[in-house]
Amino acid sequence: MSDFDALLKARGITETLGANITTGVFNRAGSHAAFALGDGSLRLADGKGWSRINAHEGAILALAPDCSVSGFLSGGDDGKFQRVGVDGSVIEIAGFGMKWVDNIASFAHPKSGLLACTVGKFVHLFNADGSKSRSLAHPSTVSGIAFDAKGKRIAASHYNGASLWFTASTSETPRFFEWKGSHLGIAIHPLGEAIVTSMQENALHGWTLPDGKHMRMSGYPSKTESFGFTKSGKWLATGGADAIVLWPFFGGGPMGKPAVELGMSDGAFIKRIACHPEFEVVAAGFDDGSVIVADIMKEKILPVCGPGRGAITALAWNASGSHLALGTESGFAALVDFSKQG
């Protein structure tokens, strides 16, 4: 049993943070991982130690790397959208009163960086310096957002489909992709070939770009809370089942192609997925607290940590893919070093 924790013990630093971890990400430089907590604090780990920043009044609901190399963006149920520095500085970008800031995304670029947050039915777009750009209205509450790889478009999921907006346009109408039901999260293919949403009915739905053909991916025993494309865009890695379910986005797939399943567990469901930034490798975190890393081409599974510390709620690679951050519902956090060691 302790074998499952071998990698964590040999290559990890761990900490018990004392509150529900809601999400976690690395900054763009990869120097710090940030964990967002239900008590409103952000905990930073830089590989040597941990620090605490009291960022929000209530729970932190959303977290993303800032456009800058080292900072973070956070949103909470206190209605605040904030910029948090590794030096502990907290700057409010916007405040929304009683409304919650549910989702955050950013697009880094030397000239045209963008920040986005969702509040109710709106996606609010900001320039990299925090100045307001536009507010995009939707028919119902926005449940997820994603920039495309070039920052030219932003996609939003909501009831009855998804909306795709050009970030530089002033048009009030997005391209609307319709599919009845409640869509809970969204991802854009890295080469811009498709958008995919997760749904209330334990399924995913997708549309090809630019022609908008439907793709249905179903058969999950629970909701897919987390999913993403691999670096090449060949695979869509998804949670919600007792194994990593990989849909092939090549050779005409996923339509009419079976999904590949990797890393079958003993009855635990996957809560978080993190695709490696360089290789066709996926990390998966389960509701029993265990984490695995799967090499898709070699079909090899590497256990990272075993069960028993609460459901995984945070899972992220740094930009080079040398470190994996993981956190759980009960406040256990770890950084695991995957770099070659001499």
């Binding site: 509450t141 009855n160 749904m199 209330q200 009915e201």
Partner: peptide
């Protein structure tokens, strides 16, 4: 915000905003 489930029940309507809000409330430390 009410939506209709795609589960074959014609009158199965659900409050999606409640699902989201209850999920959010459960994250609070307090």
């Amino acid at each position: 915000e009410v939506f209709e489930m795609n589960n074959g029940c014609i009158c199965c309507t659900v409050r999606g905003d409640l699902i989201r809000i209850i999920g959010g409330l459960m994250k609070r430390a307090q």
